[in-house]
Design a protein around this nucleic acid. Structure first.
Lengths: 184, 184
DNA sequence: GTCTATAGGCGGATAGAC
DNA sequence: GTCTATCCGCCTATAGAC
């Protein structure tokens, strides 16, 4: 008799939405993986969109924690740590893409009302990158470029499935960052 | 009384799969947009996967034509023309992302059997870029990097919806290409 | 908090009349 | 080639017993 809390449901839904996509993950999938019945599900969440909101709120808070931790390393190391998301989550990104960009793209295609929430998670990263860049003596505008470069590496890894290529692209991104921070 | 041919169906399905995604586009959507009934649909395509195959074959052939046209411009101009896909399809990419990368990502998440077909379209571009780079006196390995950069710009445009940013990123990509072709 | 039962809709797919 | 009618299964969601 498993105990399902809203947190546990959101945690599992977070994983499944990432791995299989939001639209193609059903209540039965989540309930089945959790070991509870579909009916019980509605005791915790009234609608599927409510779960999505919980998942996005969860992701937002989690990312804020990560970013705060990385910021403590100092701006330069923090920026390199951002790039290393791609290394740390290598296998997942090759299999499922970037969770942030992937959700944005899916919600955009669904014309889903929660689209701004997904974009806010991306915005959190971009604003943080801008702040770290300024602290590191770089140009603030590079934040969006860096974020886009990371998105590109994730897409390339997902499309080609080439691990060595992904590692080479990450290395190139680290080098690029050092160059722009050293005033070229 | 509209006349539905397999070509017309594939053409419309191509557009809808791009705009709304494969999984979330139903037979009713395609039939309704075409002005025919669902039943009639099966006269032309037996399964949904058969439509997907037709759409991918269609995309592959269309891209081959584009690439052949661009190659006729000469390698250097051809490579710049590739980058300008992002400019020519600006509005669509901001709204729906890159059709090539988007389909790859969606099929990966669905664990769909047609995944290799989607990757083949990306491979077509990458191989073509490699060939053009060699002809232009550049390094072949840059093909996958350039393709990934373009994917990143598309993702960034889709996430932020910022037209000026997209244009700036395209401009930067043109500059980068000139640099690597001029032997840095 | 957990379950079963069930409603109502939409998905893909089929059969057969015109 | 086009249609209507229909099947079956899965989806979200609800009601109500335990």
């Amino acid at each position: 008799m498993p105990v399902a809390t809203p947190e546990k449901i959101a945690e599992l839904a977070d994983r499944l939405f990432y791995e299989r996509g939001f639209a193609t993950t059903s209540f039965a999938d989540i309930a089945g993986a959790l070991g509870i019945s579909r009916g019980n599900f509605y005791h915790h969440f009234k609608t599927k969109d409510a779960i999505l909101d919980a998942v996005m709120a969860r992701r937002l808070e989690q990312r804020k924690l990560w970013l705060a931790e990385w910021a403590a390393l100092g701006p330069r190391a923090a920026l390199h740590r951002f790039i290393d998301i791609l290394t740390v989550n290598e296998a997942k990104i090759m299999a499922h893409g970037c969770p942030v960009g992937g959700l944005c793209q899916e919600l955009a295609r669904l014309n889903h009302a929660a689209q701004p929430g997904a974009q806010a998670i991306a915005g959190l990263f971009i604003d943080w990158l801008a702040a770290q860049l300024v602290l590191a003596g770089g140009r603030e505008e590079l934040a969006r470029h860096l974020f886009g470069r990371a998105q590109g590496v994730a897409a390339l890894a997902n499309i080609t499935g080439d691990k060595a290529l992904m590692q080479a692209e990450v290395k190139a991104l680290h080098l690029w960052l050092d160059e722009v921070l050293n005033g070229e």
